[in-house]
Simulated assay, not measured.
Amino acid sequence: MNLKLFGEVFVTLLVIVDPPGMVPVFLALTGTLPVKERIRAGTQAVLLALGVIVIFAVAGQTLLDYLHVQLPALQGAGGLLLVLVALQLLTGKTDEPSEQAGTSNVALVPLGTPLLAGPGAIVATMLFVQRADGLNDYTVIGLGIIAVMATVWLVLRFSGGIVKLLRPGGIEVLTRIAGLLLAAIAVQLIADAVAAFVELYTAAA
């Protein structure tokens, strides 16, 4: 087993996904849900993110080429999605969901994608796959991805203790802070996408 490659994949994706940084957003979106529903949302988000990353690892470049979509476009779309969620958190106009539908919606967007399986994680995974040499490397990359997602799940799974400490008032404050952080991440994603497009078309010219 190529431990060096495993370490590179694990550390790179862990830094990009940033589990500790996910906790405020996760709690802001799920803090009002019952414990079981919050755990279910975290599990669904992680499974979705794992599925998206694996799909892009296997067929990402082919899919983007077929759709005539470039990576900066994917990045910009992720940024726009996050802007919408950030505005809801900042204004406090998040809908009070029914348990089943609300849990699934939060798990899909924005937790599963574009926060966990965002442009950064997708691009990094695609680059690792392009560098891979043989089945052994592909297996190591897959194990690295699974290890990262398992780590994220554990962090989200045991973040419920923070909810007990913060209580409703603290969750309200945390929601606003999370909205601000999400807005900053969204603006950075969009700015990076614009810069990438400028560089791409300048080079082409």
Rank of each mutant, 00 (worst) to 15 (best):
Ile185Arg: 12
Val23His: 06
Met126Trp: 14
Leu108Arg: 11
Val109Cys: 12
Val11His: 09
Phe26Trp: 10
Ile171Gly: 01
Ala77Ser: 10
Pro110Asp: 11
Gly134Lys: 10
Gly134Asp: 13
Glu172His: 08
Thr175Lys: 13
Leu180Pro: 00
Ala86Gly: 07
Leu84Arg: 05
Leu116Asn: 08
Ile185Cys: 05
Thr151Gly: 13
Leu80Trp: 12
Leu50Thr: 11
Val106Arg: 00
Val25Leu: 00
Phe6Tyr: 15
Asp18Met: 09
Asp133Thr: 13
Phe158Arg: 02
Ile162Asp: 02
Gly169Pro: 00
Gly161Val: 02
Gln75Lys: 12
Ala186Cys: 09
Ser159His: 09
Asp133Val: 14
Gly102Leu: 00
Asp192Trp: 02
Val129Glu: 13
Thr91Met: 01
Pro24Cys: 04
Ala191Pro: 02
Lys4Asn: 13
Gln44Lys: 05
Gly170Leu: 04
Leu180Ser: 02
Lys93Glu: 14
Val155Gln: 04
Gly169His: 12
Val23Trp: 10
Gly60Ser: 06
Leu13His: 07
Ala191Asp: 06
Thr151Ser: 15
Val85Pro: 04
Leu89Arg: 10
Gly179Cys: 04
Val9Ser: 12
Gly161Met: 08
Gln88Cys: 03
Ile141Arg: 03
Ala184Trp: 12
Ala117Cys: 03
Met126Thr: 13
Thr125Asp: 15
Lys36His: 14
Asp18Gln: 10
Leu165Ser: 07
Tyr66Cys: 11
Leu71Val: 07
Val129Ser: 06
Asp133Arg: 15
Ala73Tyr: 15
Met126Gln: 15
Leu115His: 05
Val9Pro: 13
Val123Gly: 08
Tyr201Met: 14
Gly102Ala: 01
Ile145Cys: 03
Leu81Trp: 03
Gly92Arg: 02
Leu27Tyr: 08
Gly76Tyr: 09
Leu3Trp: 06
Ala49Arg: 05
Ile177Val: 14
Gln100Thr: 09
Phe128Gln: 10
Ala107Gly: 14
Val83Arg: 06
Ala49Lys: 06
Leu14Glu: 13
Ser98Ala: 04
Thr30Tyr: 00
Ala204Gly: 01
Ile171Arg: 02
Thr32Glu: 04
Leu116Arg: 06
Pro114Gln: 09
Val194Glu: 09
Leu182Lys: 00
Leu154Lys: 09
Val155His: 04
Gln61Ser: 13
Asp192Gln: 07
Leu156Pro: 05
Pro114Leu: 08
Leu115Ala: 02
Gly79Met: 10
Gly79Cys: 07
Glu37Ala: 14
Val35Asp: 03
Gln75Ile: 05
